[in-house]
Design a protein around this nucleic acid. Structure first.
Lengths: 328, 328
DNA sequence: CTGAAAGCGCTTACAG
DNA sequence: CTGAAAGCGCTTACAG
């Protein structure tokens, strides 16, 4: 059976018209007998209708998901969760990667919109003006994940409270020279809100002078910032915006013969599985990324069905005490 | 601007017919002046043609990618690499997740086929009879990644040689009680070929009695198998089919107060970034997953362009010496 | 319960 | 260089 088999082919084989085959696949009225003939013809050819040729259909049954990266632990969790939920609900998931490029993210969103998907889930790096324009007059519902989006619907981590909790936890050890290894402020959730939480948490314990460095999300960046910190005279407590950055810090501290937590306390955010394997185990905040994905998908389906949904949902976190922060 | 704007709308705004707009977007002849009008109208509306309505076009410019998981380090690397390569070549990537379920994998492949994508890249868990049927009369080119597929085109890791190298490396330490923590034989590449390599490598050093356990790919499975091994009387060298399994082994050995490598040597396969953070650093084999993705994508495009391609390509690996295997 | 016909958003020879 | 028309694979009122 070379070439593509179409609905017309199946119709011919079953001795009916394609209207009927279409009805068969869309739950319309078809006599049991006819139904059986179509089933056989379809099965024999491994046929299933081309979802995207349903140009006129109200629903495509497809949901688009835009992610900032395909090789981050967190993205992996969020998207796995989304995918599972949607599949159970009978939807197909279409994934597009923005590879940390905002222009690509916008292009992906446009693409998905022009694809008559039923809705879009965006795990955004950073919301810029163009997003507002684009999402403002989207023909389909959009739910934003991980970043607040006041003009629309979003599901976010509790970055401020998590930051505060960690800041306080470390602040209670009364570090003399605290440091924060962060990321760009373009990423509001991590670069601004989380940082503010951490700084406020530290300040609540009277820790006032805090050295703040900024880099990107990579392991290398964690190493570089730590290296710079040491060159500047060091620190006795380093809070990192993500676990990956903390991994970089571990490596450099280790290489320089400094002990964790005796010489330097280290903490992160993420709760990656690997964090429990470090020696000492990393003290970190674990966000419920599966919940973010699940809630996001659930909320989007509600939007599609025109049910009411909350404008903003905040998921919880958990501070995991490892042994990387010196206790008083 | 509510609702979806279509090619007809743009045509009207530009004062031309949709044939011309179509030509504009497909590189046909359009007068510079007209070209400019269309460009403006399209831009003003953020319009780009619906890729999937090109029902008749020879090429959709879209390539489908099927992956077994969205939260594995290796999948993340492979897919990131594919995505980047294709984007540079002007193709769109559409990602579908099989979530380790073979039936879902087959469904994803069918879906993609019926979607008139230009080609499909499959990172398969395991090739079964249904794959052969399905791929045997695919209307579009298919390239299989990570698993050998003798009936078609594949790009694979050098599992046997990598296994042999690691088996030999550990064998040279003359373990008395060696063990291999593996995965199901349904996964030919890892479950059969890699294992055979390891066992042959060990045997080449005269290590003959090897306890082989089988589990799944999870951290927990690594813990369970190691627990079982200890209950059976232990081992002084454990080779794990993946780094993740090795992480589980580390955890249990650590909990039982056994030292690596003094009491037990541990080795893995994968070369995850996190492996370098363990104490001691894990001895592992790093496959070039970026190369697998890159070569796979390149090969697929060649198939699409009807250029000749090798039936099978094998990418290299690298044995990374950590400190987790006792040296003689 | 099923068919004939018009239409979805796009492409492609074929004229001009 | 551009338009009119037929067609891609599917859906949807509307008849019957």
């Amino acid at each position: 059976m070379a070439g593509k088999v179409t609905m017309a082919d199946i119709a011919q084989m079953a001795g009916v018209t394609k209207s009927t085959v279409s009805r068969y696949f869309n739950g319309g009225y078809v006599k049991e007998e006819t139904r059986e003939k179509i089933r056989k013809a379809a099965e024999a050819n491994g046929y299933s209708p081309n979802a995207f040729a349903r140009l006129k259909a109200r629903e495509s049954g497809v949901v688009g998901v835009v992610v900032p990266s395909l090789n981050s632990t967190i993205s992996g969790r969020v998207i796995t969760s989304i995918d599972r939920y949607l599949r159970e609900e009978g939807y197909e998931t279409l994934i597009k990667n923005s590879d940390h490029q905002i222009q690509l993210e916008l292009a992906n969103i446009r693409r998905l919109m022009s694809l008559n998907v039923d809705g879009i889930l965006i795990s955004s790096i950073s919301i810029v003006e163009e997003h507002r324009e684009l999402l403002g007059n989207s023909p389909v519902p959009v739910v934003v994940l991980a970043q607040e989006y006041s003009e629309g619907i979003s599901v976010v981590d509790d970055d401020y409270e998590a930051g505060f909790a960690m800041g306080k936890y470390v602040g209670e050890t009364h570090p003399r020279r605290a440091a924060y290894l962060g990321v760009t402020e373009e990423d509001r959730a991590v670069g601004v809100v989380r940082k503010r939480g951490v700084l406020d948490g530290l300040k609540s314990c009277g820790v006032d002078s805090i050295r703040v460095l900024t880099g990107d999300y990579s392991y290398e960046s964690g190493q570089n910032m730590t290296g710079q910190l040491l060159a500047e005279g060091g620190a006795d407590a380093i809070i990192c915006a993500t676990d990956r950055l903390a991994f970089g810090a571990y490596r450099i501290l280790h290489e320089c013969g400094l002990s964790i937590p005796e010489d330097v306390s280290v903490a992160g955010f993420g709760g990656y599985d690997e964090s429990t394997l470090l020696t000492p185990q990393l003290t970190t905040v674990k966000f419920d990324s599966y919940a973010v994905g699940y809630l996001g998908a659930e909320t989007l389906l509600k939007c599609i069905r025109r049910e009411p949904v909350p404008k903003k949902q905040v998921v919880s976190f958990q501070l995991i005490e490892g042994g990387s922060v010196r206790r008083p």
